[in-house]
Structure formats: structure tokens, C-alpha cells
Design a protein around this nucleic acid. Structure first.
Lengths: 244, 244
DNA sequence: CGCTGGCTTGATTCTATTCAATTTTCGTGG
DNA sequence: CCACGAAAATTGAATAGAATCAAGCCAGCG
């Protein structure tokens, strides 16, 4: 949290892997995209919000008045299947953005998984700001490319037949997220329920449970408890996840 | 082709549904995002290319030297599964853009499905242009949001258990695409093979074939031939596709 | 210490995959 | 223009993995 290239200040931050080799710094994973100046510009129009765990941020179909940038905590975005089940489009963590709209209406719903600290950016002010700041826009484009790759990766993950493969790919994704945020911690923290995982990887709750069981019975996965797991057999794990 | 708001000129065009209600014109589906000025600016750095059917545009992992804008024809982007099968990330048509990179390398491979006329935009020139043109960037952001929604929709589609539901959702997506491009034609043209459809909706070739059969046996789908289908029972079709 | 919701586990059912055999379509050269 | 060969698509039979339904377990919390 401390030893970042930018000191931790109370302004919105956005991180992503660059689409193109970054002019500023290359090979560096998922670096902060915004300069101090840009973060201050965003902070000028942003409203800091604290949300408690399990709170709805917005509903699919609501008028899209704001975009959001997560500063701390975890959020899921989702939409409803006709059968009543819920499809999770994405899990969002620190320095991620959400609030995608279509024709002025939110495309998905959003709910917090933990207590969340976020910045709320009114779209009117945001678009006005963007029209005048080409560099800020460029950084936003980089972030959007990142989210697009993530969404494509999600779709790719979903095409695997075996639930344990989808689960391994999912865990790898979360691990990567967390490694980028904090290089020290070395178990995987899962802020979402088994049910949420099921709704993200497109399996039933039972299948997810069985897949966890299967991976730990085979000595590939260990668990401090249900929300803290760690990879015991890295090669075997990669072998399974790389099926993705 | 003729009665567009912009006369058909030899410059790159990009279309998308706006994320926010368009300031210029609202409710209008998938409108042209670029002004004459912007298209000319892009044309100045673009190289027009003609590609024959089935040609590889680039391979996953190649250095990403250019982005592409399709002017006419159809393209697929895809990546390989470890089992040798191919996962199709997207089908691209007129006024769509492709060439997404990660760290300077192409994320997917791209191959034409038909003869294609496209504009090749060198990334160096493109990023240079973007840094100076905030409005062009803003339009690009709109397009990226559109592609992100498409990718999320793709992932959503993939979570359905029944192949005929995935197929119906896919056909609806293609129909929508083509309706936006040409409001007159009223059968659905499928430039891709059954195998490509299978690789997009995440089913086996056999399952796709059976799903087509099932829909036509039930009188929901008609077919002039394998590449031209039409909806016979719209309510039933929507009922199935709306499961998505 | 017991309750509640999240999670695990078991038995059954069902659909899609797989493998394999045909049939159809399409491009090419006679 | 037709015939051929190759590729694409359809169809069939057997199998396997996942969904579903339902019952029990566990953990965290009052």
C-alpha cells in the first residue's frame, strides 16, 4: 500500500496492463495510468462514497448518472437470467472502473461484496472533462482495452467443458489481480461466495463445490478456510488452468 | 449503402450504439461516430488493404503494429484452445474495429471470412493522432464501450446450457448487426461456417447442426440455403433467444 | 448454545460430447 | 457443362459430465 510509485493520496486511481508498450515504463505489470494532475482533475468532479457490504450500487436499466472507480473493496456486476439465476459479468477491485451504460441506461447491476470505498463520477462532468483532456482520455482507452481483454478472457474461460478447469482459470485470474495489488500476500482471498463463483464461471453451485473438493483432494489446492485458499501444487495447477 | 447521413467516401468509418444518449442524435441505432474531419484525419494515416477470403490478417503473439477498421466484408478473431480447437472471440463487419493488443502483442488471431476491404492504422501514427485529438478519442471510447458490451453479451450467451438457446441468441446478434447495416434485407446471411458458429457459441459442430435442425423442424427457422436463414416464427424465436 | 444461511454431498436425469459413418455442397479441371 | 474429389455438414449410437433435486453439514453469529 505504501511503496507505490505514486504516494497514496485521496484521488481516483486506475490501473491496467497497457495495450501497447508503455512509453513511460515497459514490462511493468498493471501500472497506475493516471498522473497526479489527472487524478486531481478527476477528484475535482468525483464524490467519494462509502458503501457497506452487500449494498446495491445501481440496478440494470436505471438511468446511468455516474461511473465509479473502486478505491478499496470488491464489487460484482451482474445481470439476471430469465430462469432467475444471476450471471456475473465481472468482479471489480481497487483501481478498477465500472458503470458501463448503453443508451444512457446501466447495462448491468452492481453490488458490493465487501465494504467499499469508491469515487462516483457524474457522467455529465466526466464527459465534459474528457472532451478537453486528450491524455486522460488516452489512459481511459488503455483501461477500456484492458477490460475488453478481461471480458474476452471471461468468455474464453466459459467455453471449457470441465468445471475444475474453469475454476482453476478463475482462481488464476483472482490471484493475478491480488498479486498486482499486493506482492507480499501469498494466499488467495475470495471475497465472493461459492454461489458468486458459480455464477461467474457458469456452473452450478454444486459443481463448484465439487471442483474445489476435487482440487484439494488431489493436493493441488489448500484452504485456510473457505475464503482463503492457496496453491499447493503449482505445476499441476498451471497445467489445469492453462487448459484455458 | 447510398442514403447514409454521411456520403459514402473512401475513409474509415466506425459505428456503435452510444453508451450515453448521443448529444447529436438520440434513439438512433448504431450511428456513425466519426465526423468528416475525423475520418479524413484517420484516412491520412490509414493504408487501404484488400484481403481475399480466408486470409490470416495477423497471428496471436505477433507484434501489434496496426489496428484495423473493416469497410466491407467479414472477419473473425480467435485464439486456440490447448485441445486444438479454436475459440472465436468476435465476428467483425463493416465499420467495426479490431486489432486488440496486450503489451504490444496481438491478443487474438484474425482471419477473413469473405473478401475484405479494410483500413490498416499503424499504432504509432494512431496513438500520436489520438494524443492530439480529444474528440476522436471520445468517439473511440464510445466504440470500445460498445465492443465491451458485445464481449459481455458473448460471455452471457455462453452460460446457457442448451445449444439451441445459444444458437438463437447468436442469430439474433447477427440479425441485429445486419439490420443496422441494411434495413431492407430480411433474411439473415451467415458468412461463417457451422464450425465457426460452434467455436463462437462454445458447442460442438454436431450440436450446432442439431440445433439448426431442431429450430427448423419446429417451424421457427427457414433456410434458403445453409448461409441464408430467416425467422419464420418470430414470437417463438424471441422466446428462445430471450432466454438470453 | 442454538439458529440461520452458506456450503457440501448423494442419487438421478438429461443433454451435449465424442466417435464414426454418410450425405451434401462446392470448387476445379476435364 | 458435367464429373470428380475434398471439405463441410448431417446424422446415429454410446458415453460422460453436469444440472437438478433433496438431504444433511458446518461456520459464524446472536
Amino acid at each position: 500500500v505504501a511503496a507505490s510509485s505514486h504516494p497514496r493520496i485521496d484521488t481516483p486511481a486506475i490501473r491496467a496492463f497497457g495495450a501497447w508498450p508503455a512509453a513511460t515504463q515497459s514490462g511493468q505489470p498493471r501500472q497506475q495510468l493516471l498522473s497526479e494532475r489527472e487524478r486531481l482533475a478527476l477528484a475535482a468532479i468525483a464524490k467519494p462514497v462509502r458503501l457497506q457490504r452487500g449494498q446495491i450500487v445501481y440496478q440494470s436499466g436505471d438511468p446511468a448518472t455516474s461511473a465509479y472507480v473502486v478505491s478499496a473493496g470488491a464489487v460484482k456486476t451482474f445481470r439476471a437470467h430469465t430462469n432467475g439465476r444471476e450471471h456475473i459479468t465481472a468482479f471489480l477491485f481497487s483501481d478498477d472502473a465500472f458503470g458501463l451504460a448503453h443508451g444512457g441506461l446501466y447495462e448491468n447491476s452492481a453490488r458490493t461484496l465487501t465494504p467499499v470505498f469508491a469515487y462516483q463520477l457524474p457522467v455529465a462532468a466526466l464527459t465534459a472533462l474528457l472532451r478537453t483532456d486528450a491524455l486522460l482520455e488516452f489512459h481511459l482507452i488503455t483501461k477500456l482495452c484492458h477490460e475488453l481483454r478481461q471480458a474476452q478472457g471471461h468468455a474464453f474461460l466459459l467455453t471449457h467443458r470441465h468445471t475444475h478447469v474453469r475454476l482453476a482459470a478463475f482462481l488464476k485470474m483472482i490471484e493475478r489481480q491480488q498479486f498486482d495489488a499486493d506482492h507480499t500476500a501469498h494466499d488467495i482471498y475470495l471475497p465472493m461466495s461459492r454461489s458468486d463463483i458459480a455464477d461467474y464461471i457458469g456452473s452450478s453451485l454444486s459443481a463448484v463445490s465439487r471442483a474445489f473438493r476435487s482440487l484439494s483432494r488431489r493436493g493441488i489446492l489448500g484452504a485456510r478456510n473457505r475464503r482463503h485458499v492457496n496453491i499447493l501444487d503449482r505445476p499441476a495447477f498451471e497445467m489445469i488452468a492453462r487448459s484455458v
